[in-house]
């Protein structure tokens, strides 16, 4: 099992760099070519979400990624924006099942965050979104 870690300033321009690195590591880890597009898009979504959250709350904090290969290729994206719920629950905007997540809600919004998580949920073979003491963690994995 090997791990690659990436930390980047919360700037939109760096999201593409993160996508390219993750795709390269996924390919090297043995993720099938047919899944690489899904890895690239899902991780890009998670990074975009983290960058936008950092820009709102803590622009000087870097976004952190961990890529681990083994039986599965796993990517963990950590942001440093603490959840807003009283019991460590996720911010309301982050759930695809939230009231904003319906056809009408989509048509009324310009870029709801829930879209990003919905895309990740549709692409990642396994997904866990959880609050951590420091922020929100998105853990995704694919078979190799």
């Amino acid at each position: 099992m090997a791990t690659v870690e990436l930390s980047f300033s919360a700037l939109p321009a760096h999201v593409r760099t993160a996508r390219l690195i993750v795709t390269a590591v996924a390919r090297r880890s043995g993720v099938p070519e047919t899944l690489l597009d899904e890895v690239r898009l899902a991780v890009g979504e998670a990074c975009s979400r983290a960058v936008e959250a950092h820009l709102r709350c803590c622009p000087d904090e870097p976004v952190r990624l961990e890529m681990t290969d083994g039986r599965r290729f796993e990517v963990v994206v950590n942001d440093a924006v603490p959840s807003e719920g009283p019991d460590g629950t996720l911010p309301a905007e982050s759930s695809p099942g939230s009231p904003a997540w319906d056809g009408l809600g989509l048509a009324l919004g310009d870029g709801p965050d829930s879209l990003g998580l919905a895309v990740i949920a549709g692409l990642a073979d396994h997904l866990v979104v959880s609050p951590t003491p420091k922020g929100v963690q998105i853990r995704m994995s694919w078979p190799v």
């Binding site: 690239r40 979504e45 975009s48 048509a107 919004g109 310009d110 870029g111 879209l115 990003g116």
Partner: peptide, 16 residues
């Protein structure tokens, strides 16, 4: 070559 949810949001905003 690539489209993410930010792009989708822009298209939805344009439609609106």
């Amino acid at each position: 070559e690539f489209l993410d949810s930010t792009g989708l949001g822009v298209l939805v905003g344009g439609l609106k």
